[in-house]
Design a protein around this nucleic acid. Structure first.
Lengths: 129, 129
DNA sequence: GAATTATATTCCCTCATCGGAATATTCTTG
DNA sequence: CAAGAATATTCCGATGAGGGAATATAATTC
């Protein structure tokens, strides 16, 4: 993984917000929509961008696609993710994203499924707005 | 200074090399040519790019333009420069650049002029190759 | 298998970037 | 002021990114 490629992934604010949220654990696309309040195309495309460059991994879980940070990331990526986390700690936009994300599901440290991907009997969280 | 702008500055390898070398102190364009072995246009343009976004500062010193890292950089920039330094420590290309740079002039910690900008009586270092 | 939900892809537009060749600008020196 | 050295800018072409609208694909449910 080229360092320049990593930086290329980091120069769109939507992708920074995605990575910021992913630090709390895996998430599916519809939850990204709720958390970031951005249209589906936008999120899906940026996730595709990140995935094609190895900054996120994806797996299908029934109807949902669950995205997560790579289980074993190269050192430069780890360093930069830590740096990013440090840089956006105080930023209001990123803080709000994290707050909304935490309201959705408990913070899952590992690679466990996000809330929407756990097959439940009840109605799922509404995605609107 | 927007975080995304910083990352945009970091996604060209020539600019990473410039910043890497600048960590050892100010330098003028002709020395960048010697160190990076890249054509003048390329270097001048990338320096302009960095300057317009506040990642480097420039001053004229006689015939030369001396570039340096900002004296008081915002925190996100400092963090990312440190991160960059960490990431390229082992990389052969960046190491070679640093070695060639150190061969040109002593490492100047502050904002002192680079070697070529010090008016000397003798012949200046040849720029070719 | 039809309808529904979740997600991805395609098409189109606009705009920025990168690189090089050529040229212009700025300063110094005689 | 002419010549030369150091640097910047302009012009060009190729390429990729980002966004949205519309459409396609995949899985689920009834």
């Amino acid at each position: 993984m080229e360092l320049v490629e990593i930086y290329a992934c980091l120069c769109a604010v939507t992708r920074l917000r995605i990575l910021n949220v992913l630090q709390r654990g895996p998430l599916c696309v519809c939850h990204f929509q709720t958390v970031l309040r951005e249209p589906q195309v936008k999120i899906s495309k940026h996730l595709g961008y990140l995935k094609s460059r190895g900054l996120v991994e994806a797996r299908r879980e029934g109807n949902w696609m669950v995205y997560q940070l790579p289980l074993k990331a190269p050192r430069e990526l780890q360093t930069n993710l830590a740096c990013l986390q440090d840089c956006v700690r105080e930023d209001p936009v990123f803080r709000r994203d994290r707050a909304r994300r935490d309201r959705l599901a408990p913070v899952l440290p590992g690679a466990e499924a996000c809330a929407c991907a756990r097959p439940t009997t009840g109605r799922r969280t509404k995605v609107s707005s």
